[in-house]
Design a protein around this nucleic acid. Structure first.
Lengths: 341, 341
DNA sequence: TCCAAAAATACAATCGATTGTATTTTTGTT
DNA sequence: AACAAAAATACAATCGATTGTATTTTTGGA
């Protein structure tokens, strides 16, 4: 084989003196080609090292058999599990997956969306970035009759669009309630950006639990940030100005964990002085001491479900896509950081 | 705009009564089109919601501006940092990145390779799976004059192929030496599959350090496994049959961490009874108690470097690709698990 | 052996963009 | 005003595979 000389169906066609249309059909195992020639062609193809050019094929058929996935960051445990679910379902159904990370940047999210669209992926699964408050890029993609399913962060802007999410309100409510039942009275909340519905809902669940137990909601006990590692430390520092506080419910594990580490370094006894509950069930939450009570989201299942819905929408593109949203119930995992000793 | 009716350059061409070749040039900002018509065309394009069809474009130009990345698992911290480096460099240079995970399966690795090849990515960065002992898929891709750069796990099968790796021997040697200097005499080693060069080399570094310090190498102190969480526990269990052992050098953090947890649960004092050193600097290594002494690989830099080399090879495809391998030096991060109290 | 039906294969257009070459239009000079 | 050079645009082939239609070949029954 000559280096860099890509073999096409026309090369096979010439080599065997068979029309390229027949070669194409043979390589796709079409019954329109007799078994004898089919085998001859396939043999020659492997002999020449033929490799289908998907660009040409996809251009002609107007399908790529590829699903685009846009998520904030692949290294986050939750998203890694979501991806595992997506890939499993997609491969079962014969779809390829292209994973892209927005790194929580709207600009990158837009560029990725554009690139996926121009590469004609058959549909997109998206978990929007923290910065995403404009939705033009998603709207224009959907306007072009392209299927989209939101994961984890459904958007109010598209009430008719399918989404897979969890019941953040209930999870938050349950977590806060647990702290109350353990006798905590002054529970702080580490909250995320309020333009992300999910963080708003988590805050609401927290507030609701307090109210139902006749505990006053104190605004300065609610610390809003991006919930990064640094944010966790910063919030913990501020929190020490309020000696009443005896518990933290954090909207993610990252901030909860860095807060625990900072508080421990300042001589605070976790959980006796301050109990902590996080969100996400990151692997570290099990290893830190004390181990962190947290909320586990069924990422794998979310990935599977969202992919199933997307593929169904791809296949029934002609029919009107109906909203197929599902809300799953996350699980409160009780560990040491919330238990009185 | 009519739903699902994708706009092409021909639509713009008709709308303005300008030939499609001129439209194409205008959209690519070619100076061959007068500024006036260029602007007119671009305006019409956005007005109609035109979106370039990359399939067609890439088919014609025979370039995709895309780099394929095959790694065992995106959720591993080391690979996540590698990807960050890859993406940064790639985007700077105007390349897209397609990330695929082999999940340590040769079968998947082959399928991915095939898919990337048929989608005509411009080059591939690969860190082979644990199962990869046949290299036909890589060879046939390279034989077709496609650039490949190995990351982290260079292959003996391709001595002339560029690769970015670290000095596993030195890192291992240094880690073992540290334990010896701390007075440890009976140092166990958790090793990985020996068909992966990197685990073999790590073992050799360990052996060399022992020998240079006149410490006998005891075969049953070397535990070979896949270094998973379960393997770490299993090895720790076996290790308790040898009460002499006073230190572990593990070829990865995962096994080291689960071993520490198991040993602690059995009442073993870490590091006083048994000191531990891991490999990879996983985030958990900093949080576990005692914090884990480990070796940090410069993943981000490895990603950047490998991408630079790959892009250079893509651009100079005509010239003979010369081996551009680099070996970086990892850093020993000393924490509590190796320090005598 | 002949012929219609069925099977197998060939022809030719197409997907959407790019690009070398040809043609038309504009510009500037005398 | 005439004309050559330069600028702008149009024409047409091409990338590689797919697919509807047309043509050729094979098959089997009378």
């Amino acid at each position: 084989m000559i280096k860099g000389n890509k073999i096409t169906i026309h090369d096979i066609s010439k080599a065997l003196n068979i029309d390229s249309s027949t070669v194409s059909r043979a390589l796709n195992n079409s019954p329109r080609v007799s078994l004898k020639t089919r085998e001859k062609i396939q043999k020659k193809a492997t002999e020449l090292g033929y490799q289908r050019n998907s660009l040409a094929s996809n251009l002609r058929t107007n399908r790529t058999n590829t699903i685009g996935v846009i998520i904030p960051r692949i290294s986050r445990h939750f998203f890694a599990t979501v991806i595992a679910g997506i890939e499993e379902t997609a491969y079962e159904e014969g779809y390829n997956v292209v994973i892209c990370q927005s790194l929580e940047s709207l600009d990158r999210e837009e560029k990725i969306m554009n690139s996926l669209a121009s590469n004609r992926v058959d549909g997109i699964l998206i978990s929007t970035s923290m910065e995403t408050s404009k939705f033009e890029h998603i709207k224009s993609y959907m306007d072009n009759n392209n299927p989209v399913v939101f994961i984890d962060r459904p958007s109010d802007a598209f009430p008719n669009c399918s989404s897979i999410s969890i019941d953040n309100f209930k999870a938050s409510y349950d977590a806060t309630k647990l702290l109350i039942e353990k006798g905590r009275k002054n529970i702080a909340h580490f909250s995320g950006p309020q333009n992300i519905g999910l963080y708003k809902t988590r805050k609401e669940g927290y507030i609701k639990a307090l109210q139902e137990h006749n505990i006053p909601v104190i605004e300065r006990y609610i610390f809003e940030s991006n919930l990064s590692e640094e944010d966790g430390i910063a919030c913990a520092k501020k929190l020490l100005n309020h000696p009443d506080i005896d518990a933290i419910y954090s909207a993610n594990d990252t901030a909860a964990i860095s807060a625990i580490q900072y508080l421990k370094s300042q001589g605070v006894d976790i959980p006796n002085n301050i109990a902590v509950i996080g969100f996400n069930n990151d692997p570290i939450s099990e290893v830190i001491e004390p181990s962190l009570t947290t909320i586990n989201q069924p990422g794998f299942e979310m990935g599977k479900l969202s992919t199933e819905i997307l593929i169904q929408q791809i296949r029934n593109k002609s029919e009107n896509t109906k909203n197929e949203s599902k809300v799953l119930v996350p699980e409160l995992i009780i560990r040491k950081s919330s238990e009185n000793s």
